[in-house]
């Protein structure tokens, strides 16, 4: 190194590049890597912790739910709507023209068994809980759910029909363990 160094100093300035330029660049790059390397774990600390992630599934017993009745269960701190739909509601959901939907999805894509509609009960606009779970709640213009915050109307398949919400109500991952037991998450 000692022998080559003076040589480089003599030739480089003519080309407009010096050892110092290289050192500044290299040190700057290492500095940037270090900043990112430190920032990454610090930012990651704000993500969900292990215990929050561990609570990521819930089992629901379907047997007490009558036809036309809904229940709300908690999953990941959010309400999940579980509804045993009436034949009329299934019919209504299945016969909608997809061209009328802001977020086109068929009813079959949204349910595993037609009578059981299971979805996250959080309005996709700004996260309010839509009304329509209890008897006497307003259910909107499409007989499904109605969000009172900014007036989003959802149909009997939980699809957005009118209002500011951009998406249909989310469908969580779930599986039927048997005819009366379902695991969400």
């Amino acid at each position: 190194m000692a022998e080559t160094a003076p040589e480089a100093e003599q030739t480089s300035p003519a080309e407009g590049e010096t050892r110092r330029d290289f050192l500044v660049l290299a040190a700057g790059a290492m500095g940037a890597v270090a900043v990112v390397g430190i920032a990454w774990p610090l930012i990651e600390t704000m993500n969900p912790s292990a215990d929050v992630l561990a609570l990521a599934s819930a089992e629901v017993d379907l047997s007490p739910i009558e036809v036309g009745q809904s229940i709300t269960v908690m999953w990941r701190g959010k309400p999940v709507f579980v509804r045993q739909r009436t034949p009329a509601e299934i019919e209504q959901a299945a016969t909608v023209d997809l061209a009328d939907l802001p977020h086109p999805e068929t009813d079959e894509e949204r349910v595993q068994r037609a009578e059981w509609l299971i979805m996250v009960g959080v309005c996709t606009h700004l996260g309010c809980i839509p009304l329509g779970q209890k008897l006497g709640d307003p259910r909107g213009d499409f007989d499904g759910w109605f969000c009172p915050c900014h007036g989003s109307h959802y149909d009997t398949s939980g699809r957005i029909r009118v209002g500011p919400a951009p998406r249909n109500l989310d469908i969580p991952e779930y599986q039927f363990l048997n005819d009366t037991l379902v695991r969400i998450g």
Binding site: P48, V52, R76, G77, K78, G127, C128
Partner: peptide, 30 residues
């Protein structure tokens, strides 16, 4: 809930961003 959900409007990374901000899947202790 409503104000943090504003961030979910960010294209592509909105939901990831909101989860990060919440430190969970909803507004909760974190």
């Amino acid at each position: 809930t409503v104000i943090t959900n504003l961030l979910s409007a960010v294209p592509w990374i909105g939901d990831t961003l909101v989860t990060w901000l919440w430190g969970g899947f909803s507004v909760d202790n974190p």
